[in-house]
Simulated scan of single mutants.
Amino acid sequence: MKMQQQTIARLGEAVIVERELPQPGEHQIVVKTEYSAISIGTETMVLRGNANGTALGYNAVGIVVDKGAGVRHLDIGQRVACYGGGSHADYRLASKYLASPVPDHVDPEEAAFVGLGAIAIHAVRQAELQFGETMVVVGLGILGQITAQIADAAAYRVIGFDIEASRCDLFRSTVRRAIGCSQVEQVAAALGEGPGADAVLLCGGHKSDRLLDEAIKWVRDRGNIVIVGVPNTSFNRNALFYKEAQIRISRAGGPGRYDDNYEQAGFDYPIGYVRWTEGRNVEQFVHLLAEKRLSVKKLIRHRFDFANIDQAYRLCMDTPEQTMGVLIRYDP
């Protein structure tokens, strides 16, 4: 009987428990984890909500050690980046569609942020921009930083906003021709006298903020506002009416998320009908790393051994403004 050590939420604390590792299903793989990455906003929200028994994490990279009969594109011994729940574990199950091979020249530390990468890619797609258009990324935490780099790689003009000046400085160091703003007035100035931003992506937020109203001010007539983080969702109806802008939610990594037929039973969506599933977004994240059009290395500020993962969460809970990329290392 194979056992795994997995991190779960237990009434506000992150604890490591030992559990039996299930055998892989027909469309699953077993991965020996090398690195996992904390999604600070989502995972601290789970802890603050006093969840009990929830497996934490959804970003990881590791080596395939077993697989089901229906897995043909991945081999045992191959390094893969994996998206999906329960990633902070020494061994974990993953869906075949949510695991992408990692080329040898790609740094596995960067590949460990694959879940956040897929979420960022799907959010950029939800903005429905065309070549030459402008995006404002609000909230320059780890998700916003990755989102901004992906938008830049797609040749959009990117304006970043965060009240933490240090995050704006980091943004300017990783995004070409970046315009980083730490005050709302600076965003308006960056947009100038033109029509406004074609899209505003809200990658951060708090239940008491007014970011949605600011986004309505910044977006152009009939532009798109995409909610990626968890901002306050109340807004000035008349301001939205005047512009007839659209507000949309970006659901995790893309089509297929929360669909058991896709994630567990192995039924893919035909590419002619659904071009970009969450699995294809996972592949694109690794592809961007492989082509060096995306760099996560500068975003990694903290590294912890798996045995000390509780200290990593305490840092994220106590001083979120000082955290960015938080990486967990596992024994070889």
Rank of each mutant, 00 (worst) to 15 (best):
Q4I: 11
A9R: 07
R10A: 01
G12M: 02
E13G: 02
A14C: 11
V15Q: 10
V17K: 07
R19A: 02
E20S: 10
P22G: 08
P22F: 10
H27V: 00
H27Q: 07
I29R: 03
I29D: 00
V30R: 12
V30L: 14
V30H: 08
V30F: 09
K32W: 02
Y35M: 00
I38L: 15
S39A: 08
S39P: 13
I40R: 14
I40A: 08
E43M: 06
M45G: 12
M45Q: 13
G53A: 02
G53P: 05
T54N: 10
A55L: 13
A60S: 15
V61K: 05
V61R: 09
V64Y: 06
G70S: 06
L74N: 06
D75W: 15
I76N: 08
G77W: 15
R79T: 10
A81C: 11
A81N: 09
Y83R: 09
S87N: 05
H88G: 07
A89C: 08
A89I: 00
L93Q: 03
A94S: 15
A94R: 14
S95F: 07
K96R: 15
Y97N: 01
A99H: 13
A99M: 11
S100I: 04
S100G: 02
P103F: 00
V106Q: 00
D107P: 00
D107L: 07
E109S: 09
E110Y: 02
V114D: 06
G115W: 03
G117W: 12
A118D: 02
A120K: 09
A123M: 09
E128K: 15
G132A: 09
G132C: 11
T134K: 14
